[in-house]
Write a protein that binds this DNA or RNA. Structure first.
Lengths: 126, 126
DNA sequence: CATAGTAGTTTCTTATTGGTAAGTGGTAAC
DNA sequence: GTTACCACTTACCAATAAGAAACTACTATG
């Protein structure tokens, strides 16, 4: 009882494409910190965020990881990096317009996480 | 220019909760295969899916990984496992009702992946 | 001239992930 | 009685991810 697409092909024929698209997403956004960093920067678009500030406010991240993840996000045009010639040199990180396109992903993950926590608490009560 | 919540607290005060919720999600759904498996099973709710079928149709997954990931998904009540006393024993895997709550997550990831691929192709053309 | 702050990098080490390949135990066909 | 299929499991190994701590280089303050 396979569903049929508009063009007459079986829906299954497209499933691998869906899975491939998801793998593409996970290649770029996967790992322990990338989505956390993107969400953090999305929440702070109205603030000036530099390296130390992120390291202090994202719980548990090390300088090495932050540096590495920011580089990769920058390479994928999701985050911008701007060096400012201030007295002690500062570097401002911000989410790009393209980076904002990831918002629906972090949004669903935040919602699911909250939902899941409730489910767990409920399960413990019983 | 921090935004103010209904209760008068700064929006930032809630950000770490958001990040924690996301971490909860990533703990349960993170890794190379879990979301792929959930998406696969969501796409095949109308079919009977057993172990070998999944291994054949999810490109690149090994028996070890599939076994391990299915166990973890089962422990989190996202996937059901039903042994059938057929001639050669078969085991049917299916997504649970709770597992279906992950659909918005995989949906946004599929969409973003397709979007991203277009962006990459566009970038290469130029 | 010691301390502290910015922005990382480097080194070393451990933990986790993931892959290959072989093995187990059962049924059934040829 | 050998091959094949199902559903895994186990052992072994390599690669990657991740963390801790120290270090570089520069500026500024006391």
């Amino acid at each position: 009882m396979a569903k049929i697409n508009d063009n007459g092909t079986l829906r299954e024929a497209n499933c691998s494409e869906e899975l491939m698209a998801m793998r593409d997403s996970l290649d770029v956004l996967g790992g322990k910190w990338k989505l956390i960093i993107l969400r953090f920067l999305t929440n702070r678009t109205h603030q000036v965020i530099n390296f130390k500030k992120m390291q202090r406010e994202i719980d548990g991240i090390s300088a090495k990881m932050l540096s590495k993840e920011l580089k990769e996000l920058e390479n994928n045009l999701l985050v911008s990096r701007t060096t400012q010639q201030t007295k002690p040199i500062t570097v401002v990180y911000a989410i790009t317009e393209y980076g904002k396109s990831v918002l629906p992903v972090t949004e669903t993950l935040v919602n699911w996480g909250l939902h899941h926590r409730e489910k767990i608490i409920e399960a413990i009560k019983k």
